[in-house]
Design a protein around this nucleic acid. Structure first.
Lengths: 240, 240
DNA sequence: CGATTATTTGATTTCGGTCAAAGTAAGTGG
DNA sequence: CCACTTACTTTGACCGAAATCAAATAATCG
């Protein structure tokens, strides 16, 4: 009984896994999970670890179980742009041949559950719902990418920073309901990385954060810990 | 025999259709094409015609048969950003509920082949390869969106214009093989639209185009017709 | 605790934006 | 066919937001 998702017969590792609830593994039945889990590897990576190299073809895909992964593109002269951030339980990987290359790197300490590309492709054939979930994940990534295109092309530095903090708050703060007044979280990116995400320089990022702090829209402790007392006030500065 | 794509038993409209060769309809057999063609509408739209409204939920999807469609996002104060351009035989539509809204508009005169959302969703269930094609289309759009994020965030105005002309040349100029020396095409966008695509102003777009013309990297006739004598020279200015 | 790295702050420059005007093209109706 | 309107594009002068250059301060780590 594929449709019936219980914990009976499910691999121990999968039992409490986010990817089985909101991620792509939700498409799989106990027997399929069991089959997949045979070629599955769960592992941690430290912040900064390169997960998917630009050049090398990728032979393993992953689910992000915790932490944040950044997807980066680099121009020949070294200019960088972060083109996506992935949070649990996102799927990490580009099935079929990509027409543009990118690097995936752990932005924070990251927990991954990885499996061979072949295993996924085999399962997709026998369980079309898996491909469906993958499509939905990629559609979500596309929506996000387009939202950031607006920020990159048309928002001011101040608006970019506000939008960024808002996005992080919504993704990281556990159980971030649609409308909640307060939020507090650990920034997953350094100032340099935020700059690479927003198409700014480190200095501009720093100045704008200082400005938000000066207007007490946010409070910051230890450089990385951000507290937003009134999300609405932050959202009002995001520009959309 | 689904795999065997002949013209026998195929609806007349589909027989010579690009979407059946490189688009999503390639996943369908004669019987399925016939079924789909019953609820299919082929129609033209003039440049400027709004195809998919921001607010209204979309009840029809389309294949682009000719022309160029632009996907736009607008901030509350009117600032606009074009987040995608679609050429034949791209699929136009966002299956399943979108988490971000956008407007689709004919950039040039456009020919579409549209069908009800329901018809597509029904067919996807009986023919998983259709969903597979859709996934591949959306992955391509995602790759493109990310390429433009790099341009928007990290390229100079001059590089943005060069990248844009290059992208148009590759998509519009019929039979644009990977490496060809010359290219000539009609710009599908006005200066204002190019500005909205590249996150620039009309004036900057105009000045950069003038500059490229001054350095005879491109020639322009009648404001819209562009001739590139040496694509390599243009590519050298794109920055990647 | 010293060394290294990350962040903030300040002074100055610059690229692209804004404002303004002139040049061009494309209709439209007399 | 031509004046006239309207919309689009180019060009110029000037301005300003963010970049660059430079230094100080704070955090992190062995």
């Amino acid at each position: 009984m594929r449709e019936d998702i219980h914990t009976t017969g499910i691999p121990v590792l999968c039992a409490s896994c986010e990817a089985r609830h909101r991620g792509i593994c939700g498409a799989l039945g106990p027997d399929q999970l069991l089959a997949l889990s045979k070629s599955t590897m769960r592992h941690k990576a430290d912040a900064g670890k390169e997960l998917v190299s630009d050049s090398r073809s990728v032979e393993r895909f992953s689910n992000v179980l915790s932490g944040v992964v950044k997807l980066t593109k680099t121009l020949s002269d070294g200019r960088q742009q972060i083109v996506g951030l992935q949070f649990a339980p996102d799927f990490l990987g580009r099935p079929f041949q990509a027409e543009s290359s990118l690097t995936a790197e752990a932005a924070t300490e990251v927990e991954l559950c990885s499996f061979p590309r072949q295993a996924l492709e085999r399962l997709m054939k026998e369980q079309p719902d898996l491909e469906h979930r993958l499509l939905e994940q990629k559609l979500r990534e596309l929506d996000q990418a387009r939202d950031w295109m607006v920020a990159l092309g048309r928002k001011t530095a101040a608006e970019k920073i506000a939008s960024f903090l808002l996005m992080i708050a919504r993704n990281i703060d556990p159980g971030a309901g649609p409308e909640r007044r307060r939020a507090a979280f650990e920034l997953p990116l350094s100032r340099a990385e935020i700059a690479d995400f927003l198409g700014l320089t480190i200095e501009t990022v720093s100045r704008q954060i200082t400005r938000l702090r000066g207007e007490s829209v946010i409070r910051i402790e230890n450089n990385r810990h951000v507290i937003v007392d009134d999300i609405g006030r932050l959202a009002a500065r995001a520009g959309d």
